[in-house]
Amino acid sequence: MSRAPVLEVDGVSLSYSGRLVLDDVSFEIGEGEFTGLIGSNGVGKTTLMRVILGSQRPNSGTVRLGGSSSAPRGSLLGYVPQKVVLDPDVPMRARDLVALGLDGQRFGWGRRTRQQHAAVEQVLHDVGAEGFANSRVGTLSGGELQRVLIAHALVSRPKLLLMDEPLANLDPKSVQEIVSLLHRVSRDHEVAILLSAHEMNALLPAIDRIVYLTAGRAASGTTEEVVRSEVLSKLYGHHVDVLKLHGRVLVVAEPGHERNDIPDHPPLTIS
């Protein structure tokens, strides 16, 4: 890896009531790298993000951010949670929510400086949210809300942006828009992104690296390094084929081993 790592996850294991969810997971993310965290439902993506955030303690292993395992994480990290439910009756405009990304954790009423207002305007522009900046957050559509949440997480200029399944519930056009937006943001703002998804195809054109999570274990590297038959077969514990067609990938288990927890697997026939 050419650039200094902003995140180092080393040997993280975690179990919930005796069930191992993360099993010795290790990977690194370099500055400004866009990394996809790919895995099917329930495989531990959210859990891994919570470990990185520091809100969940692993049973073993370490997480180092910006070269330190103890630095305050708030200023280095931006986080967009998987489930954000907002009430349409709350009089908070999208612009207000973005501004709370600067200082929402601080005490006091808070008068914002001209620079802070400018930063809010800039990030609203960067994510293409000017058009609905004055709408109540609870009334935004899924795609609009994602943009506002990205702005909220980005406005404090973090080094690493954690995004938990931001593409779920979006139609293909919005998926493409958000992915290219994040690609642009990671390049222009020099911010590393770890984005979880249960499908990789929409991400392949944009991401630099991939962390592939299955049954608690992870393989990481560039997409070429990871999305290969040998690597994924070892991860799944039986043979899978990786088919590449027109820049898209299909992961197929051999007959008799078909399973429904493989991302980007063609649908199984129902017998």
Partner: peptide, 13 residues
């Protein structure tokens, strides 16, 4: 004010 506001809007955020 600010933490109260943000947690009133969304406990996740």
């Amino acid at each position: 004010y600010r933490p109260l506001l943000l947690s009133s809007v969304s406990t996740e955020l």
